[in-house]
């Protein structure tokens, strides 16, 4: 494939990855920002979202869209409620101590993974996309006959992939409104900035934490429901989203929501675009080092403020 179309295809693919990543990482970012804990089980909440989506879709008859829509509502609610339960049952009792939270959430990770393996099984299971038309894309070039349009071999995307990008943007926008325009958002921000003062002003910090933890997990689940018609539900699929969202949150700057989105796009796109120039594994190595170097030279992250 010629350079131009190749770059365009890689960018489109990168945008899809970045959209999902932005949603998943946003979940982690909110938890990290407000509660200051590392949730190692975040990837498992993602995986649960995908598995539940499969379960819902396979129990809802009719057109594939019904199952998908049902999953889009049920999966995040269920996963969010479960995460809130984890918060009440475990995190609250270990007082959100950073080290203990790591051990505790590793424990939760094992529990969720093993339970899924025993019930859902080890196979990767597909969910049918509500719609999935292959869209061939044109490319323009100045040739001998002036400006010409042609259809390069292989340059295409699918309607569903474009939908994922749009859906992620809409959800992120809604989240932004929630946090900046509503009272709930105000309470969250107050808790994030100074939980003790917030408590003194009557904010039920404990309950806010549960909500936030549930919201974070729910966002991961939404990301998973969106991705599962492209990839498949599998009990080990939470591994990469965890690492990537973790990286995104830190690169973006701790607690900065715009930073998280920017970082998600930086990482998603760079992965795609660098792969145009190098062999796949080498591209991955360079992309990884590039992102690490961002942090080495800007330790507070892209949008983060210098630590006091």
């Amino acid at each position: 494939m010629e350079f131009g179309p190749h770059l365009m295809l890689a960018s489109l693919e990168g945008a899809v990855i970045a959209s999902i990543l932005a949603l998943t990482a946003m979940g982690l970012s909110i938890v990290f920002g407000v509660m200051r804990v590392v949730n190692v089980a975040h990837g498992e909440f993602f995986m649960l979202g995908a598995v539940i989506a499969w379960w819902v879709a396979s129990h809802v008859g009719g057109h594939a869209a019904f199952g998908f829509l049902a999953a889009l509502i049920i999966a995040p609610l269920f996963v969010g409620a479960m995460a809130a339960g984890v918060d009440r049952l475990i995190l609250k009792r270990i007082e959100y101590d950073p080290d203990r939270t790591i051990v505790g959430t590793i424990g939760v990770l094992y529990i969720i993974q093993q339970t899924t393996l025993m019930t859902f099984g080890p196979d990767a299971r597909p969910v049918e996309a509500p719609f999935n038309t292959r869209l061939a894309l044109p490319w323009f070039e100045w040739g001998e006959n002036g400006f010409a349009m042609f259809w390069p071999w292989g340059l295409s995307t699918t309607s569903y992939k474009l939908f994922v990008i749009v859906a992620a943007a809409v959800i992120l926008l809604a989240l932004w409104m929630l946090i900046t325009r509503t009272k709930l958002g105000l309470i969250m921000r107050a808790t994030q900035q100074d939980s003790e003062t917030a408590q003194a002003f009557g904010v039920p910090v404990g309950r806010v934490y549960s909500w936030v933890f549930g919201l974070g997990a729910g966002l991961a689940a939404i990301g998973a429901v969106l991705v599962v018609p492209i990839q498949q539900a599998h009990y080990l699929m939470g591994h990469d989203p965890l690492l990537l969202s973790f990286i995104v949150v830190i690169i973006g700057g701790l607690g900065s929501l715009p930073g998280t989105v920017i970082a998600a796009f930086l990482i998603g796109m760079s992965d795609g675009i660098i792969s145009v120039f190098f062999s796949p594994t080498l591209a991955k190595i360079f992309a990884t080092l590039l992102v690490a170097m961002v942090l080495v030279f800007r330790p507070q992250g892209l949008m983060g403020r210098r630590a006091p």
Partner: peptide, 20 residues
């Protein structure tokens, strides 16, 4: 010869390297 990194979950961006 297109070698895909083992951690990969999406693949489309590697396919343009398939010669015409």
């Amino acid at each position: 010869k297109i070698a895909i990194p083992p951690t990969e979950t999406t693949f489309t961006r590697y396919f343009p390297s398939i010669p015409r």
